[in-house]
Amino acid sequence: MTTDTVHRPNGASHAEGTGAWAVLLPPGRYDAERLVHHDTLELTGLEDRLLPGPGDQVAVLADEPPRLVALGRVAVPTGYGPEDPEDPQSGRGPDALVVTYTRRAFDEPVPAETLTLDGPVTALDPVTFRDLADRLGPPQQRRTWLVSLDLPIEADSPAEAVRLFWAYVQELGPRELPAFVSPSGDELAMQAFVLGAEANQDPEEDD
């Protein structure tokens, strides 16, 4: 499933860039981006490379095999900061490349095996970028979903039960806890999701 968001770049009054780039997610980052919603993608350690400029278009890719998982635009950089926040005179850390998502396809990535990548950031010609973007097809219509998480918790009081609930949520997260989702008004269509994918929670159906 793909989702769209309105582009809201950092530091709003910058003209849109004209460049187009492919950005490769670091190992393990795809799962993190798929499990929890983020408005932006921030990458560091790219100071020795030619980097996109503010407003440039970006195709975000996952590797092995190469897949298009999102589109975005480069946000206006916030500048360098001290490496040690408690010591303003310390050496400055590298700028981060910040990409504001404009389209997501983490649940249904688009194959991109024919794309030749030159490391974590690769310049693309506009035709190649548009071809990649067009493979996503039209965005699906947004709708309202009901999402719930039910945990049986033993506690001394309702307040203590709520505290334990949030402790379990923070500790276990979407990798272990099943979340239940259904279209608003159609609770009979409820599905359980674990690790970002539909998961069967009926042990009788496994027999």
Rank of each mutant, 00 (worst) to 15 (best):
L51V: 14
L68D: 00
L46R: 08
E33V: 05
Y80R: 15
D39F: 15
D48L: 09
V36K: 04
D56G: 07
L43I: 11
V58K: 01
P85Y: 08
L97W: 07
G79M: 08
R34A: 14
V74I: 08
P65E: 05
R67D: 00
P77Q: 14
T44C: 06
D63P: 02
A59G: 08
P88H: 09
V58S: 01
L61R: 02
E64N: 14
D48P: 01
R49V: 08
D31F: 08
R34W: 12
G55K: 05
L43A: 04
P85G: 09
L51H: 04
E86W: 09
R73K: 12
T44N: 12
D48A: 11
G45W: 06
P52K: 03
V98I: 12
D87S: 10
E33S: 01
G81H: 11
P82L: 06
E83P: 01
Y30F: 12
G55W: 04
G55I: 05
G28P: 10
A59E: 04
R49M: 12
R67W: 01
L71P: 06
A32P: 00
G45K: 08
V36S: 11
A59Y: 02
S90C: 13
R67V: 00
D31K: 08
S90A: 15
E42I: 07
P94L: 11
V60Y: 00
P94V: 13
A32I: 04
V58A: 01
G53C: 10
P65K: 05
S90M: 08
G79H: 12
V76F: 09
D56V: 04
G93W: 02
A96F: 04
P52Y: 03
V58F: 00
D63I: 03
P54I: 01
A70H: 00
T44S: 15
V74D: 03
H38D: 10
P82C: 10
E33H: 04
L51G: 09
R29M: 13
E83V: 09
E86A: 13
P65N: 06
